[in-house]
Amino acid sequence: MQYMLLLYLDETAWPTMTPEQQAEGIAAYGAYIEALTKSGALVGTGRLQPTHLATTVRLQDGKPLVLDGPYADTKEQLGGYFLIEAPDLDAALAWTARCPTVSHGVVEVRPIWPMSG
Rank of each mutant, 00 (worst) to 15 (best):
E85P: 00
Q60I: 01
T37H: 14
M1L: 06
G80I: 03
A94T: 06
Y81M: 07
V106W: 12
T74G: 06
Y29G: 08
G40A: 08
E20W: 07
G105K: 12
L67T: 15
E34P: 03
M4G: 14
V106Y: 07
A94K: 06
Q22C: 15
E11G: 07
S103E: 14
A35D: 13
E76H: 13
W95D: 13
D68M: 01
G79V: 00
P70D: 04
Q49G: 06
T37V: 08
H104P: 09
P19Y: 01
G105I: 12
H52E: 13
G79H: 02
F82N: 06
A35W: 10
I112D: 06
R47P: 01
Q49S: 08
A27V: 08
V66P: 05
L5Q: 14
A23H: 07
Q49P: 03
E11D: 10
G30D: 04
W95R: 10
T16Q: 15
V106I: 14
G79L: 00
A31I: 08
Q60H: 03
R47I: 05
P111M: 14
K63R: 15
G46M: 09
L36Q: 00
G30W: 07
D68I: 00
Q49D: 08
R110Q: 10
R47T: 09
T74D: 12
E24S: 06
T16C: 13
I112F: 14
D61W: 11
G25F: 07
R47F: 05
A97W: 07
A86C: 00
A13Y: 05
G62N: 03
A92K: 08
G62V: 00
G44I: 12
W113Y: 15
P87S: 10
G79I: 01
A72F: 08
A54I: 01
T37W: 06
T74F: 11
D88P: 04
L65E: 10
K75T: 15
L65N: 11
A97V: 02
T96H: 11
E20D: 13
R47L: 07
T56F: 04
Y81D: 02
E108R: 14
E11A: 04
L83H: 10
V109K: 03
G69A: 01
L48I: 05
G46P: 11
L5A: 07
L42H: 02
L78R: 03
D88V: 06
Y3R: 10
M115D: 09
T96K: 06
E11V: 02
I33S: 15
K63S: 12
A27I: 09
A91T: 15
L78E: 02
A31M: 09
V107C: 13
T37A: 06
L53W: 03
A86M: 00
R47K: 11
Y8R: 13
G80Y: 09
A86F: 00
